[in-house]
């Protein structure tokens, strides 16, 4: 019920780059919704600038990036940079889609991505990770 404090985890799911479909990210979106989170979905083909602006307006704690196109090493570091420039480095960024392990390691170690989820990850794992991050905030 509203009235008493009613905090919710808010997640912005975005698809940067030129991917043509969003089945995977929508499955994650539904799982997060079913776990009681408020999930905002961007739609396809977002530029890093636009999606960072949207994430700031929506004031989310979690930004989830889904990239299948192979352009993750160009897009994700740019998004991380924009977040830092906007003084929003405290937003937890997670990524998924098709990202090879070597790249994932670099994204986490050098660019500040919190976690990269490989293809076929159990959505419960993502839910648990987000909850744990948000509790620590």
């Amino acid at each position: 019920m509203r009235g008493a404090m009613d905090k919710k985890i808010r997640v912005f799911l975005a698809k940067p780059g030129l991917d043509g479909h969003d089945r995977g990210v929508l499955i994650v979106g539904q799982a997060l919704r079913d776990a009681g989170m408020e999930v905002i979905y961007s739609g396809l083909k977002q530029t890093p600038e636009n999606l960072v602006e949207a994430a700031l307006q929506e004031d989310v704690g979690i930004l989830g990036l889904s990239i299948l196109s192979g352009a993750h090493m160009a897009l994700i570091p740019r998004i991380m940079e924009l977040l830092r420039e906007s003084d929003a480095g405290d937003v937890t960024v997670i990524a998924g889609g098709v990202i090879p392990n070597d790249d994932a390691e670099v994204l986490v170690a050098e660019h500040g991505v919190a976690r990269v989820f490989g293809p076929g990850t159990d959505t419960r794992e993502i839910v648990a990770f987000i909850r744990e991050r948000e509790e620590r905030r």
Binding site: E38, S42, Q46, E53
Partner: peptide, 23 residues
């Protein structure tokens, strides 16, 4: 569950990036 999947922005992509529009 109290959760929600909010997809209205998908139809408002043309507006994103404009700092004078707050969604």
């Amino acid at each position: 569950t109290g959760g929600a999947l909010l997809g209205d922005r998908v139809r408002m992509q043309e507006l994103s990036g404009d700092p004078e529009v707050f969604i």
